[in-house]
C-alpha cells in the first residue's frame, strides 16, 4: 500500500470539455496513468493520476481551471481472478468507507493498483 497524489478537476458537462483538459496534459508532456469521471447533471469532476502531479497542478491553474490535489491510497492487487475480491474483503473487514475508486494497471502488468479515496485517513492508514 502506498499514498499517491490525485488531481480533481471541475468540468461542465458539455461536449469538448474532456478534450480541453487532455490538451493541457499533452502540451505539458504529462503522462496520464489512470483516470475516472464522475458526473452529475450539468457538471462533473474528473480525477487523474499522473506522472508529474505538481507540474500538472500548476499548468491547470495557469490555464484557468478549478483544480485540487489530494492524497489517495493505492492498494496492490494481484492481476488474477479473485484479486479484487481479496482487497474488497480486507477493506470491508477494516470498516473503511470508500468515496471513490478506480484501477491503475502498472506498466509491467504484473499487478494492479486500486486507487481509493478514503476520507478517514487515520483509520485507513492504521488498517492498511
Amino acid at each position: 500500500m502506498k499514498n499517491i497524489k490525485q488531481l480533481s478537476i471541475f468540468a461542465e458537462n458539455k461536449p469538448g470539455k474532456l478534450e480541453h483538459i487532455t490538451k493541457v496534459f499533452e502540451e505539458n508532456k504529462i503522462n496520464i496513468m489512470a483516470f475516472n469521471i464522475a458526473s452529475q447533471g450539468d457538471f462533473g469532476i474528473m480525477r487523474f493520476i499522473v506522472d508529474k502531479p505538481e507540474k500538472a497542478l500548476e499548468a491547470f491553474k495557469k490555464a484557468g481551471f478549478t483544480i485540487s490535489m489530494n492524497e489517495v491510497f493505492a492498494i496492490e492487487m494481484e492481476d488474477k481472478p479473485g484479486g479484487f475480491h481479496n482487497v474488497a474483503q480486507f477493506i470491508a473487514k477494516s470498516g473503511l468507507n470508500i468515496e471513490n475508486a478506480y484501477v491503475l494497471i502498472e506498466k509491467d502488468r504484473q499487478g494492479a493498483l486500486l486507487i481509493c479515496d478514503i476520507k478517514d485517513t487515520e483509520k485507513a492508514k492504521k488498517a492498511l
Partner: peptide, 15 residues
Amino acid sequence: EASESLFSDEIRHME
C-alpha cells in the same frame, strides 16, 4: 463560477 473556494473533489459536497 465554481471558484477554488467553492470547489470540492467530492460531487456530493459540490451538490
